[in-house]
Design a protein around this nucleic acid. Structure first.
Length: 257
DNA sequence: ATGGCTCCCCGTGGGAGA
């Protein structure tokens, strides 16, 4: 089984890219972020024609997440269990082949002095509480993928000195990320690829992609029970080279059966 | 270099993204 995660920056603007990506790659489960559309506006028919069932948690203009799957899920959950942060649709979960797959789109935070940074902190605290108290990390195969809006280490930005303290590379954000890791999760990409400067996002502006001035902010966090069945985690860079691309590119894990 | 691009909205500029 292959599970992909991709922030498409509007599914309606990126429909052709999403289809092309699924045609060119053997993906069983596609986790999408930043749909920027409501559930009834999601172009489900096109994906259904390719054999995917679509579970969407969308909203108008901003945010929105979806899980597209060729394999029938045994459970779907929308949002946090207590409806916290319900005003921004950023988390959906599907249980597929015994894997609890959480698809997240973390808030950006704008800048570390902005009130949106406080919102980002609160959201990560809620995510941590969910993983600690509700996810059953000690007994379930758990995968949390998506756009974390945090580049965790110096290897994950072009110039750590220049990025230090800025949004997505602030020491406080590193604490939030490491607190998730401390629950017993792995940054799955780093199990398989120790290469420095592999990125999943490049700014649209100033030719950032051409100069490879990007960040690795899209991740798969996985627990040991999941890791036992995962045999790869890799970034597929090509979609970022396509015409009118998303600013993010997909990251994928594959499992042994 | 808080700008550059790109997306969205009862739009024709402003907010948001990262």
């Amino acid at each position: 089984m292959q599970i992909a995660s991709w922030n498409v920056n509007s599914i309606r603007s990126r429909l052709d890219h999403a289809i092309k990506f699924l045609e060119e790659n053997d993906i069983d489960v596609l986790c999408l972020q930043e749909l920027k559309c409501q559930d009834h506006e999601f172009p489900a028919e096109q994906f259904e024609a390719m054999g995917y069932k679509c579970y969407t948690y969308g909203q108008k203009a901003y945010n929105g997440v979806a899980i597209l799957t060729k394999i029938e899920p045994t459970d779907i959950e929308y949002g946090f269990s207590d409806k916290a942060f319900e005003e921004q649709k950023r988390i959906i979960k599907a249980t597929i082949k015994g894997f609890d797959i959480y698809n997240i789109y973390a808030p950006n935070g704008n800048n570390p002095k902005d009130e949106k940074f406080i919102y980002k902190e609160g959201w990560f605290k809620r995510l941590k509480r969910m993983l600690k108290n509700e996810a059953g990390l000690d007994k379930n195969k758990v995968v949390i993928c998506g756009d974390y809006n945090i580049a965790p280490t110096d290897a994950d930005v072009k110039d750590p000195k220049k990025s230090f303290g800025k949004i997505c590379f602030h020491p406080t954000e590193h604490e939030w990320f490491n607190q998730l890791i401390d629950l017993g999760l792995s940054d799955c990409f780093r199990i398989f690829d120790k290469t420095e400067k592999v990125f999943t996002w490049w700014d649209y502006r100033a030719g950032s992609f051409q100069t490879n001035k990007g960040m690795r902010i899209d991740h798969f966090l996985t627990n040991d029970l999941a890791n036992a069945e995962i045999d790869n985690c890799y970034v597929i860079k090509e979609p970022r080279t396509w015409e009118k691309p998303s600013d993010h590119t997909p990251i994928v894990i594959s499992t042994k059966d």
